[in-house]
Each structure stands twice: as structure tokens, then as C-alpha cells.
Design a protein around this nucleic acid. Structure first.
Lengths: 202, 202
DNA sequence: TGGATAGTGTTGACATTGTCAACATTGCTG
DNA sequence: CAGCAATGTTGACAATGTCAACACTATCCA
């Protein structure tokens, strides 16, 4: 590969496509991502992406999967400096989850919106989401063993928690929440209610 | 309007567009709704819908709003024959909510997916969603007065509950749930956790 | 009654988009 | 250095949303 600016080959177009698509999605929504537009922004022709992704849907799937990876990294980092912080870490993780969604609205929407992504089970996306979920289950299992939360199927417990934070994040993103309601307070009460519902010893 | 089959005018195209679009959405997803396809199914030309909706987005907004209305009707009907059924009604409403989502997957996705709907605050959709929310708030307020649940801002309480059922519905819809997990059990545990978290007297 | 007029539906046209095929350029490997 | 695989470009095409110009119909008023 050449290093001068007039390179015929881009260098690392695949990675550039992923970050540029993510940026466009957060700036102007998924519908603003067209093959021509993304090519223009990267100084590349409209069909160059086809050398790296089978079609537009595959590109979006990869972007969504990368989103799950980033989200997982952020959640893993919560309380990493203070291990064994007890049940409080659960609350912090839940709040970090919602924060991620609010900071990356378009990206987050894509992660859950299969609309823009044509059928065909996309294992890449499924696996990224599952990795995030497994992390959650592990945390719940740990807290069950330490006796701080109810002993229930940790998978179901994790799904309930995941659903709750995802739901609130989704409502906030879609601006379904009245402006009179304080978003931070809503997020806090969501995690608080969840913890009250799952805490051991009634 | 004429009554023979070769009518130039459809009769009630507006209503037909709404139900047909909803049907197509649940059958093959929002992306399958094209002006040409819906016209074909209704025996009408591609641009006939423009006499009733400003553009495709406006049609989808109307479909989504109708979805919120139908959902509200169903939730209002829960326990209507057994008034004052206590806190148990909350659980039933939550479960009915998820059931609606699972029975109308495409329609439900559209209600919350602003992707397919181009910007421009669509007051019709906002109002339909708010009507549903107001109904929820009223129910929580009632239960607070009867002393069965914690005295908190009922709006926030309603948002937490709404978010939780919406989140679980969304995970189920997007097939983000492992097949080994029982969907009915997950739904029940969601409402149970929520109620435990909100019940008065710890 | 009959004709104006607004409402409703149709066809033609155009720009945009995703995608494929054919071709061009580059980098790497023997 | 020859050749081959990887990567990028342009031309073309079908599908789509949408608008303008035109056609048909119902309704209401003189």
C-alpha cells in the first residue's frame, strides 16, 4: 500500500466503513447511511464497500455487533477498580447501560432494530449480544452466591434486568417521556425498583 | 359512491390503507410496505394513497398511532369485569401488554421505531402514546391511594413499569432471548419483580 | 335538473438508491 | 519480473417515493 494521499487503495477501508457508518447513524439516523453517502465521506466510490461487506445489511449488522462489543466493554469497566463492591455495582451497571444508549442514540437503535437489517440470522450480531448477556448472567450468579439477591434462575433474572434498562433507555431515546419528568431520577428509580424486587430477604 | 365492483372510487381507501398496511407489516415487516405494493393489494394505483396521507411516513405514523389505540383498548379491558381486583390487576395488565406485542410484532416494532418514520414531531403519534401512558398513571395512582403500593411519583412509577414490559417485549420480539428460556415464565417473573419492587411495606 | 367544483384516482416522469458486471489499479508472491 | 489475488471504479438496471398533469365521480347550489 502506498502512503501518499492519492492512494488508489484506501488502506483499511473495512474499519473506516464501520466507524464512519456509526458516526453517520448517530448524526442523522440509520436512513442517512447510503452506500453513496458513506463512499463520498470516505472519498471512495459507491460500490467499494461491496469488497468488504456482502451488502448494505451486512455492513449494518457489523456496526450493530460492534456496538454490543463497545457496550459490553463499558459495563465491564464499571466498578472494575472496586471489586466486590456488592449489590451497588448492579445499580451502577444498569445506569451505565442507559447512559450508553443516550450517548449513542442512532447506534443503539440499530443494535435492537432488526428493521434496517434484512432477515437471515446474522450470527455475528447474535453472538455479540449473547456475550453481553452472558456477562450479565455471571454478575447475577455471583450476587446470588454472596446471598444478596434472591435465588432464582439467574438467566431469567438477567433478562428481567436487561429488559427493564433497555425499555427505559428505549422510551427515553424515542422521546416518549414527558419533558416534565427528570430523566436521571427515572433511571435511578428504575434500578432501585429492580433491586428492591430482586433483593433477598423480602 | 357507486356500489358495483368496477368503482373508480374506492369507497373508504383511507381506512383500507391503515388496515392493509398493518397487515403487511405483521406479515412481512415494515420494509415490505411500499406505495406500489399496498396499492396493488388494494387494487389501486401507486399514488392513490397520496390523496389521504401526505407521504409514506404519514401513513406509517397513522398506523402506529392506531396501534397505540388498540393496545390501550386491550389494556383497559383487562379486569374490567372484576373492578377493584387489587394489585393483581397490575400484573395482568403487564402481561397483556407483552402479549399484544408478541401477537403484533411488526406493528409493535413500528410503534416504537421512529426509524421508518421521518422526523417532524408527529403529534398524532405522540398523543396516542400519551393517552396510553395516562391510563397507566391513573391505575398507579389508584393503587397508591388504596395503600397497596409505595407512594412515589406515579408518573415515574408508571414509566418504570412501562419501560420494563416494553423492554422484555422488545427482547422477545427481536429474538434476543435464548430458546432454552421459557417466555411465559420470563413474562411472569418480570411482572413479579416489578410488583415486589413497588409493593408497599417492603 | 343540471352544471360547477371539490374530492378521489391514474399515468408519466424523474431523482435516488442498492446492486451487479465489466474493467482498472495495486500489492504480493514465486 | 510475471502473474494473481485483492481492492477500487464506472456503467447499467430495476425498484422506489414523489410530483405534475390529467380523468372520473359525487355533491351541492342555481
Amino acid at each position: 500500500m502506498t502512503l501518499d494521499g492519492s492512494a488508489y487503495h484506501h488502506g483499511d477501508l473495512r474499519a473506516a466503513l464501520l466507524t464512519e457508518a456509526a458516526a453517520m447513524i448517530d448524526e442523522e439516523g440509520t436512513s442517512s447511511v447510503t452506500m453513496r453517502a458513506i463512499g463520498r465521506r470516505l472519498g471512495v466510490s459507491r460500490s467499494a464497500p461491496y469488497r468488504h461487506f456482502a451488502d448494505k445489511s451486512a455492513l449494518l449488522v457489523a456496526v450493530a455487533a460492534a456496538g454490543f462489543d463497545r457496550l459490553r466493554d463499558r459495563l465491564e469497566a464499571v466498578g472494575a477498580g472496586d471489586p466486590g463492591a456488592g449489590i451497588e455495582r448492579l445499580r451502577q451497571i444498569g445506569e451505565e447501560y442507559v447512559r450508553f444508549a443516550l450517548e449513542n442514540p442512532g447506534h443503539y437503535r440499530l443494535m435492537y432494530g432488526k428493521e434496517a437489517i434484512t432477515r437471515k440470522d446474522q450470527p455475528e450480531l447474535r453472538e455479540a449480544a449473547n456475550a453481553l448477556f452472558d456477562e450479565l448472567v455471571r454478575i447475577f450468579r455471583t450476587h446470588q452466591q454472596s446471598g444478596s439477591i434472591k435465588r432464582q434462575d439467574p438467566q431469567v433474572q438477567a433478562y428481567v434486568a436487561w429488559g427493564a434498562v433497555h425499555g427505559v433507555a428505549s422510551l427515553l431515546l424515542e422521546e416518549q417521556i414527558l419533558t416534565a419528568v427528570d430523566a436521571d431520577g427515572l433511571i435511578r428509580q428504575t434500578t432501585a425498583t429492580l433491586l428492591d424486587g430482586v433483593r433477598a430477604g423480602r
